[in-house]
Measured scan of single mutants.
Amino acid sequence: MLDDRARMEAAKKEKVEQILAEFQLQEEDLKKVMRRMQKEMDRGLRLETHEEASVKMLPTYVRSTPEGSEVGDFLSLDLGGTNFRVMLVKVGEGEEGQWSVKTKHQMYSIPEDAMTGTAEMLFDYISECISDFLDKHQMKHKKLPLGFTFSFPVRHEDIDKGILLNWTKGFKASGAEGNNVVGLLRDAIKRRGDFEMDVVAMVNDTVATMISCYYEDHQCEVGMIVGTGCNACYMEEMQNVELVEGDEGRMCVNTEWGAFGDSGELDEFLLEYDRLVDESSANPGQQLYEKLIGGKYMGELVRLVLLRLVDENLLFHGEASEQLRTRGAFETRFVSQVESDTGDRKQIYNILSTLGLRPSTTDCDIVRRACESVSTRAAHMCSAGLAGVINRMRESRSEDVMRITVGVDGSVYKLHPSFKERFHASVRRLTPSCEITFIESEEGSGRGAALVSAVACKKACMLGQ
């Protein structure tokens, strides 16, 4: 009897593995994704193909990295998701002549009506938060230079001027797309009239992360975010950046690689679950690469896999709870928690219980395998993109072996128990001629924006502006 049951459990697990095998990517698959990513990057950089390229390769006008001589107080704003952060950054000489960066910050959550109302409502709310922060720190009387981390696709015309191309991540505030974001912020500050600010720089969160990590390690020339969304930036040779005049030196390019796949480059790798996630998203047909990796989508992918296993009578005796059938019910943090389970399955059992399920031991094991399959594919897909960037940098610099540091931020990278190990191992397999160091950014977005502002202020002083 026991043997029969054991055989049935083994057969069930084997069927589960057959279904989950769809998520496995072979090294040849990853090399294919990497080569296609490089081709799209090239198209994004070139003037004649930029418009139709899915990977936009947006110039950021960040050319210099901090040298350690900029000092002063800077205000930093960070808008990239449902939370908005205001930070005071003091850049100065530390002990023994070292450079020191001290920060104080406060988080504000953005109400739904500000995210989806008008641009005026959104930026009025942001300036209200700045006003509140300055009151708390008794700094209303000071006109501070301000660095703005704005983590949406922007076409820069200068370091302090950028046109919002399109909202992502659930934002829909009308009247912002096609307009200068810094102008919208300046107008809102003017409307309030109770404080003055000098907006000197606007950067993407990947750029802010790279600059913040450069402060720790001067070989950091790539910034990457794996959180709600997924994106990367890197220092490109100016001669390859056709959208900006000049051939000397390097400029940081914001790849906006989340949109890779929007022209069909990933079609052969998309599964039924991916198509369902895409169809029910706020932007169907867009940001397809990001939807395979980002935390906004990972939990939902797992939920759809679990429903398939229920329908195949391989999980929960073929019956799903009402909660499990509800879109968004299986949160991405559950994926991390399930994979963090120590082996007694308590954590998995508790999560499934909150979803109205009474799982068996085998159910718990199957749910864990589903989570591992989805998150491992995410790590491997992400590795193909980064390997594409790094191999490109090595080739354009004609280096036999390139040493490089990548600064990384984002909740999936930082909080998932195995993502970074799987990701690092896969990147290294795909970049055999590179020695890569990964560092995690601390308060990256805010500190990085302030350091970019410090560079901009120093330049302005040198130019006598």
Rank of each mutant, 00 (worst) to 15 (best):
L2F: 11
D4I: 08
M8L: 09
E14I: 08
E14Q: 11
E22F: 08
L25P: 08
E27V: 12
D29M: 05
M34K: 11
R36C: 13
Q38K: 06
Q38E: 13
K39L: 10
K39E: 12
M41V: 05
G44S: 00
R46N: 12
H50G: 06
E51M: 06
E52F: 10
M57A: 04
V62C: 05
V62T: 03
R63H: 13
P66S: 14
P66Q: 12
P66I: 15
S69G: 14
E70V: 14
V71P: 15
G72F: 00
D73S: 14
D73A: 05
D73L: 09
F74G: 06
S76P: 03
S76V: 03
L79I: 08
G80N: 03
G81A: 03
G81K: 04
G81L: 01
N83D: 04
N83K: 05
F84A: 04
E96R: 09
Q98L: 08
Q98V: 07
Q98C: 12
W99I: 15
W99Y: 14
S100V: 08
V101I: 08
V101C: 12
K102I: 02
T103F: 02
T103M: 05
K104F: 11
K104L: 13
Q106C: 08
M107V: 02
Y108Q: 03
S109H: 09
S109G: 04
I110E: 02
I110D: 00
E112D: 11
A114G: 05
T118W: 02
A119P: 00
M121D: 05
L122H: 02
F123T: 01
F123I: 00
S127K: 06
E128S: 12
D132W: 03
F133G: 02
F133M: 07
Q138F: 06
Q138R: 10
M139I: 07
H141T: 06
K142A: 05
K143N: 09
L144I: 05
P145C: 13
L146S: 01
L146Y: 01
F148C: 02
F148S: 03
F150V: 04
S151P: 02
F152A: 02
V154F: 03
R155E: 01
H156D: 01
D158M: 04
I159W: 01
I159P: 02
D160M: 03
D160W: 01
I163V: 04
L164P: 01
L164Y: 02
W167Y: 01
K169D: 02
A173E: 01
S174D: 08
A176Q: 00
A176H: 00
A176G: 01
N179W: 09
V182F: 05
L184M: 07
L185E: 02
L185Q: 07
R186H: 01
D187Q: 14
K190V: 11
R192M: 03
D194E: 11
D194C: 07
E196Y: 10
V200N: 01
A201E: 04
A201H: 02
M202S: 00
V203P: 02
N204I: 02
N204H: 04
A208Y: 01
M210Q: 10
M210T: 00
I211Y: 15
I211K: 07
I211V: 13
Y214I: 15
Y214G: 15
Y215N: 06
E216M: 14
E216V: 15
H218E: 12
V226W: 04
V226M: 07
G227D: 00
G229W: 01
C230R: 00
C230K: 09
N231L: 07
C233H: 02
C233R: 15
Y234T: 00
Y234Q: 02
M235D: 09
N240H: 14
L243N: 06
E245P: 14
G246L: 06
R250I: 14
M251N: 09
N254L: 04
E256K: 01
W257H: 09
W257G: 00
G258V: 01
A259H: 10
A259Y: 03
A259C: 02
A259S: 07
F260S: 01
G261P: 03
G264F: 14
G264H: 00
G264Q: 13
E265F: 00
E265M: 02
L266C: 14
L266K: 10
D267I: 11
D267E: 11
R275L: 09
R275M: 12
L276F: 11
V277C: 06
G285V: 06
G285L: 14
Q287M: 05
E290G: 02
L292M: 14
L292N: 07
G294A: 13
G294R: 04
G294E: 01
G295N: 00
G295Y: 03
K296W: 04
Y297L: 07
M298C: 11
M298G: 11
E300P: 04
L301R: 10
L304N: 08
L306I: 06
L307F: 06
R308H: 14
L309P: 01
L309E: 04
V310S: 14
D311R: 14
E312Q: 15
L314H: 13
L314I: 13
L315A: 13
L315G: 12
L315M: 09
E319S: 11
S321C: 13
L324V: 11
R325K: 13
G328E: 13
A329V: 15
E331T: 14
T332I: 03
R333S: 10
R333Y: 15
V335P: 06
Q337F: 05
Q337Y: 09
D341V: 08
R345T: 12
R345H: 13
I348R: 11
L352V: 06
S353W: 08
T354H: 07
L355A: 10
R358S: 09
T362P: 11
C364V: 09
C364M: 10
I366L: 12
V367M: 07
R369T: 12
E372F: 12
S373P: 04
V374I: 13
T376R: 11
A379P: 05
H380G: 13
H380N: 10
M381P: 03
M381E: 01
A387V: 04
R392T: 12
R392K: 13
R392A: 09
R392Q: 07
E395M: 09
E395Y: 13
S398V: 11
D400I: 14
R403Q: 09
T405D: 15
G407Q: 00
G407K: 02
G407H: 00
D409L: 02
D409V: 01
V412H: 00
V412G: 04
K414V: 15
K414T: 15
H416C: 02
P417Y: 13
P417K: 13
S418A: 13
F423R: 04
F423Y: 07
H424V: 14
S426V: 13
T431Y: 10
P432A: 10
S433A: 08
C434V: 13
T437K: 12
I439R: 08
E440R: 13
E440C: 13
E440Q: 10
S441W: 08
S441G: 12
E443Q: 15
E443P: 06
E443A: 06
G448F: 05
G448Y: 02
V452P: 02
S453Q: 09
A454D: 01
V455N: 15
A456N: 15
C457N: 11
M462G: 14
L463P: 14
